[in-house]
Design a protein around this nucleic acid. Structure first.
Lengths: 226, 226
DNA sequence: AGACGTTTGTGAAGCCATGCACAAAGTTGA
DNA sequence: TCAACTTTGTGCATGGCTTCACAAACGTCT
């Protein structure tokens, strides 16, 4: 009757954001031959409260055994299913500068569930070069349906000024999941998901806390400014 | 009397996370010669609600003019001050593989407030190489106080297995702000800030939503599983 | 079989963040 | 000078996430 809670219920965004972390830790445990974990142990390894872990997992279904814990293999599989990693997602990277190269050869990319199927860059000096056994092509070929396999996820690794135009092309090609490394806010139609990863934003957040600590610790006056 | 609200009041983390975005947009407006913006305009450019923008800015102080809006230059300066970007933060990158190279030459790094002062890698094939005019050195020199300028922020761009050991070294050298690109949870003492940027986590979150969309759109049954 | 110890799954409470709606404050024009 | 208009700053309500605390469920040992 009731099939898969993961596909029926609503899973909170905050929970979804933590699932990859749980999965990574579970995979490591599985490699080490650990058969099962308690919520307390797993939570400690990931760095969250055990109650939070249990509540997160409860959104996927009831895969634990009371008095025992969770079977590592089973739980890893269920999280994979919830995240949609049981099927392969074809990924394309646009912008093959330093960052694009790093992303393409990043091992974590290939792990599970994702497969790079296309690399794009309009720089003639880069077109034709092969990275991880895939030739870099000009972005114009993205529109050509016959030249490109289906793509589920587009990664933008271009400079900021080019990001919006690239994004429009990706959306035009039917891609509705985009990972944006360019420091730019992208305008997209309804139904398209954009996640942004920004190095300088992260640095600035660190700087804020660093400043806070510096002020709290040493010279907590520093009022002699204006 | 009351000096700087940014240094006195508590600024919510959620607000701090948005300030860099506001700052980036304001900088672009300043370059374009725009003298002032309303909360409505700025919010639209960043992609948030105007009420949220106003509430965020209210935590820094009262820098707007009713009936007019915010002076672009002034607001940019105040956000910079709140984030601690009026002084330079020396940054070190550990792990000069593909990602480390990309980070070192990433333009956004140099923009404002941050300055790369050291590059480390223990691979003999990399030691000595110069990137952005800085020579790569072995990590052992980090401990040598005389060989390294003060460092405020450490960036970990190593493979996951090495991350914890590198982190321990950074902390041992007195660094209390760490940006971690390795897919690993780092254990650090109280008072040390770690922010993690993980590509595969972001991809997995995208995959979750993509799966959700696929199920909702097409075959919303798919119950023929178990 | 039954009692005991352990761990899950979850109601309930508290907390933080978001969004609304409006008074206060400022500008512009007559 | 005064009225009309614009936009900020904020009290309040709403919603979501986190944490607590405990009953229900399971295995184990006698």
């Amino acid at each position: 009757m009731s099939a898969d809670p993961a596909l029926r219920r609503e899973i909170p965004d905050a929970t979804v954001a933590r699932l990859p972390e749980y999965l990574r830790t579970l995979s490591r445990l599985a490699e080490d031959g650990v058969p099962s974990v308690s919520s307390e142990e797993l939570a400690a390894a990931v760095g969250v409260r055990s109650a939070q872990l249990r509540k997160d997992l409860s959104h996927l279904g009831s895969y634990g055994v009371r008095g025992v814990g969770y079977d590592v293999e089973t739980l890893a599989l269920e999280i994979s299913r919830a995240l949609g990693l049981t099927e392969d997602w074809p990924v394309a990277i646009v912008g093959m500068g330093n960052l694009g190269h790093a992303l393409a050869s990043y091992s974590g990319f290939v792990t599970k569930g994702f497969r790079i199927v296309a690399l794009f860059d309009d720089d003639p000096a880069l077109v034709g070069e092969r990275v991880v056994d895939i030739a870099i092509r000009p972005l114009s070929e993205l529109d050509d349906k016959h030249a490109v396999d289906p793509i589920s996820i587009g990664v933008i690794a271009t400079p900021a000024p080019a990001a919006q135009a690239v994004c429009d092309r990706l959306v035009g090609a039917g891609i509705s999941s985009i990972l944006n490394f360019a420091p730019a806010v992208l305008a997209v139609p309804e139904g398209v998901d954009v996640r942004r990863v920004d190095l300088s934003t992260e640095l600035q957040i660190l700087a804020f806390h660093a400043q806070r600590k510096a002020l709290a610790a040493g010279h907590l006056g520093a009022a002699v400014l204006s």
